[in-house]
């Protein structure tokens, strides 16, 4: 495992910590898209079905359990916690799940490595993760006052994807025969979705302004 992969995973973990900090400590999920969080829970549930059958390392197994556990915990907080759920911007978070889930599933049936249930679901999870941030980005654009934790959460998620791209470049040059086209192309699409957000995040940070996205 190279440094970019490790930093990518740690950035991903940190993004979850930041979000849980906001939800659990501040008891607010304002500006957070439940749609995106539900899509992430679905991503991990379909990708990590191999958790008991396919052992890579203790590190991988522990991380999988953390991402599965935290994603469902976040969804539970936003839907059921009596204080947190009242801070959810339901009227603004209007993106429809099926608009992302159905095309991703269709694509997974068409473009995959093997036609087995586990393989199709794994491929589906890769495609879905690439676009799962979409409802969150739409919600951010509609939010007038984006708080620091929400802005940092999305920034960390984008940074995690960017670090994974660097990880793949290193692996391509250091591991013989290493290639994974489905993951690479989805990863590039996913990172590109953050480009606009990054631009405004850095611009506002450099000007010492509060983060705001043009609508």
């Amino acid at each position: 495992m190279n440094i970019f992969r490790l930093c990518g995973d740690m950035t991903h973990l940190l993004s979850v910590v930041v979000l849980l900090l906001k939800i659990h400590t501040i008891k607010s999920c304002a500006g957070i898209s439940l749609k995106t969080q539900e899509l992430y829970a679905l991503v991990f549930a379909t990708r990590y079905l191999d958790i008991f059958t396919h052992h890579v390392s203790l590190y991988n197994t522990v991380m999988k359990i953390i991402f599965l556990g935290t994603s469902f915990t976040i969804v539970w907080y936003m839907r059921h916690h009596k204080v947190v759920r009242q801070t959810y911007d339901k009227e603004q978070d209007t993106f429809k799940h099926y608009m992302l889930i159905i095309p991703c599933f269709a694509l997974a049936l068409l473009i995959k490595t093997k036609f087995t249930p586990l393989e199709v679901l794994w491929t589906f999870s890769i495609y879905l993760e690439a676009v799962a941030i979409f409802p969150q980005l739409v919600l951010l654009q509609r939010t007038k006052n984006i708080d620091n934790l929400t802005g940092n959460y999305v920034f960390l998620l984008g940074a995690y994807r960017g670090l994974y791209l660097l990880n793949w470049i290193v692996r391509y040059f250091t591991e013989k025969g290493y290639r994974q086209w489905i993951t690479w192309i989805s990863g590039i699409v996913q990172t590109a979705l953050y480009a606009d957000f990054f631009y405004y995040y850095i611009k506002c940070w450099r000007n010492n302004e509060k983060l705001h996205l043009p609508s």
Binding site: R5, D9, H12, D50, H54, V56, S57, N60, M63, K64, F67, T113, W122, Y164, N167, E175, G177, Y178, R179, Q180, I182, T183
Partner: peptide, 10 residues
């Protein structure tokens, strides 16, 4: 090893 089958990333 074929990395498409390895799935060693998260």
């Amino acid at each position: 090893p074929d990395d498409e089958d390895e799935k060693d990333e998260l």
